[in-house]
């Protein structure tokens, strides 16, 4: 499964971002290979509608689970409609969030 984690920066020790739509980076983690890739969030600079644009971005990369501090109502219904799971994560680093995946979402 591919996981997209909203990240404040581009390193494993970065904190998981509180915002989904406007986070600076997404950490894409692939549970089958164990690899993590940090990609700039193209939706971040949108004047409006960053949330839906960020959903388009993560969905187009085949994401099955997203992690962020919180998700707005517009985002939730879009992710639900696409069958993408959401998990709220606060005060953790990206590395810690990834570690928690194997416990909460065993494949």
């Amino acid at each position: 499964m591919k996981i997209a984690i909203a990240s404040e920066n581009d390193g494993m020790n970065s904190t998981v971002d509180g915002r989904f739509g406007r986070c600076p980076y997404f950490a894409f983690h692939d549970t089958s290979t164990g690899k993590t890739e940090f990609v700039r969030n193209p939706a971040r600079e949108s004047s409006e509608g960053a949330g839906p644009a960020a959903v388009e971005f993560v969905a187009s990369r085949g994401t099955g689970l997203v992690m962020a501090g919180d998700f707005g109502t517009k985002i939730r219904s879009l992710l639900d409609g696409l069958g993408i799971s959401m998990e709220k994560v606060t005060g953790k680093t990206v590395a810690e969030a990834i570690k928690s995946i194997s416990i909460n979402h065993p494949e």
Partner: peptide, 21 residues
């Protein structure tokens, strides 16, 4: 659309107007 008001996924063939935006 300049306001991200059309949610679009080509591969998944999904298109949705975000009325609020």
């Amino acid at each position: 659309c300049n306001y991200n008001a059309i949610f679009f996924l080509k591969e998944a063939r999904r298109i949705k107007v975000m009325d609020d935006l």
